[in-house]
Design a protein around this nucleic acid. Sequence first.
RNA 1: GCCCCCAUAGCUCAACGGAUAGAGCAUCAGCCUUCUAAGCUGGUAAUAGAGGUUCGAUUCCUCUUGGGGGUACCA
Length: 579
Amino acid sequence: MSDVNKLEDRIRDLALETLKDVPKDFIFDFDLPPNKELGDLSLACFSLAKTLKESPDSIASKIAEKLKVENDLIEFAEAVGPYVNFRFNSEIFINAILKEILEKEQDFGSLKIKSKSDKYIIEFSAPNTNKPLHLGHLRNTLLGNAMNNLFIRNGVKSIKLNLINDRGIHICKSMLAYQKWGDNKTPETENKKGDHLVGDYYVLFDQKAKENPSLMREAQELLQKWEQGDQDTIHLWQKMNHWAISGIEETYRRLNISFDKVYYESEIYKTGKDIVLKALKKGLCEKLPDGAVQINLEPYGMDKKILIRADGTSVYVTQDIGLAKLKYNDFKPAKSIHVVASEQDYHFRVLFKILEIFGFSWAKNYEHFSYGMVNLPSGNMKSREGTVIEIDDIIVEMESLAKGEILKRNPNVSPIDLSGRSKIIALTALKFFFLKFTPAQEIKFNPEESISFEGATGPYLLYAYARIQSVIRKAPVNRIDPKDINLANLQEKEERELIKNLFIFQKILAKSMTEYNPAILSNYLIRLAQLFNVFYHKHQILETGNEKLLNSRLSLITAVAWVIKNGLDILGIETLNEM
RNA sequence: GCCCCCAUAGCUCAACGGAUAGAGCAUCAGCCUUCUAAGCUGGUAAUAGAGGUUCGAUUCCUCUUGGGGGUACCA
């Protein structure tokens, strides 16, 4: 329990003393007031009014009266209609926030809160080994990674899981095209990342198949050969998969993304079929005349669904059934979250319903984290038509843009700094762009306009952080000691605004997690950096001529930097000390 | 046809059913001999339409219009 939370709890207790008949676990609606002058925090009385059957205005004034009496904690309290606005005693308030943050700052790496025993699985990214990762994967991967970090930071154990789709008809398409037209090319001979080389043949297949439909049948034959273990086919598959997976792993490294556990579909695709066959014996599915196995979901408002084809092969949902069981066996998660775009909403409704029908009680812990698709101005991205933006390409392009921006401002930067900074700035701009949208929103990605280094962007946050580091470097004291803060010094309204917003950092993290929405954190960080820039512009930090004020303001900006760094860290973004 | 999601300023996005609907971009007017101007200050500008529920609706419900997705023995 942090000191910050204790403040709210004390307000709560005081209010409860005044109000009879309110359950002890009642959740109070604390929020920042809309206007700077109103106070540090406000309490909305609407839900209290419902519980007490009394008007919110009169409850608000009762609470305000009570808070006015308790003057060790509250400096000022006032009922404004149905709201109680109050200002904390400065010393207590700032102590609670700044000390808490500064103490953590001194031990930056070990912030992770003690874990509960519950364990979550977050499954995301899901690359296919027939093409490079594109912007759709990027959004997916960044969301999954950020959610994992939010869980951990909120004290929940979380496992990052990736399923590599390395078999199936789509894989055989690129294999067939390579067999026919590959000419023994390799990533080395072509000086090309393996995933990009494989992707070229996937696109080529689609072009050729338009003129020659029989290629599709050949690809199916290749899949059958693969399933039968045909040596040549397996060798080709291994060779091309190795190229593709190496390339994909390289992209993950560039993005700074890692996984705790990776499943390969080729290793697990049979488990789902076994489960379905057992369910068939129990009478939970039916066998069609041609031998296919089907489940009837019509009683649940969905269509009938084939689970095993007449030729005995399994479909997509069947493999997901198998994976679901496997994940349960391996981890017994309290929650298992699939991060998958909204185009598969129906697929997951079907999957979860089937798991329920099959009697898996753990199925209720499985969730689909749905998010909107990434589109280009020209429409949807389609790999096989080559109308995609690949992650590797966009990173290169953005690094070059970032270099230009750096040189524009600092022509004498050393080549090493130029390269290091441009990498981080480019990645920051890219990642933050994808994480500032509410997940449910579709993203229209316009390469010319979407990526910017100014305004509400990742680099804006980096810049605020670097400015703070620069001030701290120039400060006469090289270490902030929490015990030396003279709290009463921070009375400017810009300072108070910053402190109020630092106060809600933990709440923002909790809200981002429970709503599965990293954009709440992203938007909060922008707001905080904006407030810092206003403060920075208006008030001197180093040249105040007042030792105590200097120390207080250094403490304040250190705390702001700490929150920005931690927030960005959760979003999977590194910071820079100089820009 | 049926199902799901979305619609806020010229553009891209915010806003637990609550206080004066906020930002960024663009545009116009300003601010670098002062801790990094990737910044700051100010101006212009919005809830698609019609009903309903509520003390109160951008938010919830119904319909209309306009977008996107799904409805495979593809993944």
